[in-house]
């Protein structure tokens, strides 16, 4: 039921997103004032501040939001699909496949533009392997899917370690950044926002079915949900979102797992609220984490994935602790 506190939650998250975006745009080694940001949008002239804004800060902030939104929505989908609160977007091996694809690209010395395609191809291969094996005999059970995904991930993990230990030290650094998530080279296009919009609209459209599926397969079938179709849809859309996020930024951990949980603890258990709320909170978390990652030890840039966890872990434990006491 959409209640007043749901609207309150959504509007607070919208405000948080705005603050996060502003914080990110205003922070950095070059001082940029809020007036300069305003004038950037009203009268785009050439100038250092405008150049920094349009070529570095704004694209990076937008990329952070996109990655966080996609991962958080994908986390919601995976948790319903597997009916398991420990599920995250990477649990079924999408990130492993993408990482192996990208690292192969780095080893082959391809340009960063092509690297994206390598990563996406790796994610796609992994998705198809897991789906193909787990649905092979027509009995696509949650346990079978989970087990296949975890085992395939372990395989990718071993390959990643093999790459890391056998390659030259010069490429290891860029590999590690990729594995821990890095937004410094990230750019997003209009297509990415279109994907978020599709995720939101599609997600809200199936939200009531997700509420039912969360209570179990049998009850979902008897209430008239086509669970076979719904699960395939969930699986492929979650995989697509994760694959796109990973190709933008590498594997940014933690956001996909904890964002839905934080929101559920704040009372957003209905997927009609949870899906848009996850997109906003996930995006904000990554923007804030990335801003800290590039400013705290400036001019040194740290991987954003490290900071999503550094901020995420205490926040999560705090909320878990206070919701348990109620």
């Amino acid at each position: 039921m959409l209640q007043q506190h749901h609207y309150l939650l959504l509007s607070s998250l919208l405000a948080l997103t705005g603050v996060a975006i502003l914080f990110s745009i205003l922070s950095g080694s070059a001082e940029i004032s809020i007036d300069q940001v305003m004038s950037h949008f009203t009268s785009p002239e050439t100038g250092l501040a405008n150049q920094i804004l349009s070529e570095i800060r704004i694209p990076r902030t937008l990329a952070g939001f996109t990655v966080g939104s996609l991962l958080a929505m994908s986390g919601v989908a995976m948790q319903v699909l597997l009916r398991n609160p420990l599920a995250d977007p990477y649990i079924l091996g999408v990130s492993g496949g993408a990482a192996v694809g990208a690292l192969s690209g780095i080893l082959l010395g391809v340009s960063s533009f092509l690297l994206v395609n390598f990563a996406f191809a790796g994610a796609l291969v992994s998705t198809l392997i897991v789906f193909g094996i787990s649905s092979r005999f027509g009995n696509w059970s949650v346990i079978r899917l989970l087990l296949t995904g975890v085992v395939v991930s372990a395989g990718w993990g071993a390959l990643i370690n093999l790459f890391l230990t056998t390659s030259q030290s010069s490429s290891v650094q860029s590999m590690l950044f990729w594995l821990m998530g890095d937004l410094s080279q990230s750019r997003v296009a209009l297509g990415h926002f279109f994907l978020i919009a599709v995720g939101l609209v599609g997600g809200i459209k199936i939200a009531r079915s997700l509420n039912v599926l969360s209570r179990g397969d049998l009850i979902a079938v008897s209430l008239g949900v086509n669970i076979k179709l719904l699960r395939i849809f969930l699986y492929f859309s979650a995989s697509l979102f994760t694959a796109v996020a990973v190709t933008i930024s590498g594997t940014v951990g933690f956001v996909g797992l904890v964002t839905p949980h934080i929101l559920r603890m704040l009372g957003a258990r209905d997927h009609r609220v949870l899906i848009p709320a996850s997109a906003l909170l996930g995006g904000s978390i990554v923007i804030i984490a990335d801003t800290l990652a590039r400013t705290i030890l400036a001019p040194q840039q740290l991987p954003v994935g490290v900071f999503t966890a550094i901020i995420g872990v205490p926040c999560f434990l705090l909320i878990l602790n206070s919701s348990g006491r109620k």
Binding site: R208, G216, D270
Partner: peptide, 27 residues
């Protein structure tokens, strides 16, 4: 069913309301 309804968090009210799902109210 005999299967347990609990899994991902939900309240009693939210769960019972799912019984109205087949009637396809507004989105």
């Amino acid at each position: 069913f005999q299967e347990n309804l609990s899994g991902l968090p939900a309240t009693v009210f939210e769960t019972v309301l799912l019984g109205r799902y087949p009637y396809r109210g507004s989105l």
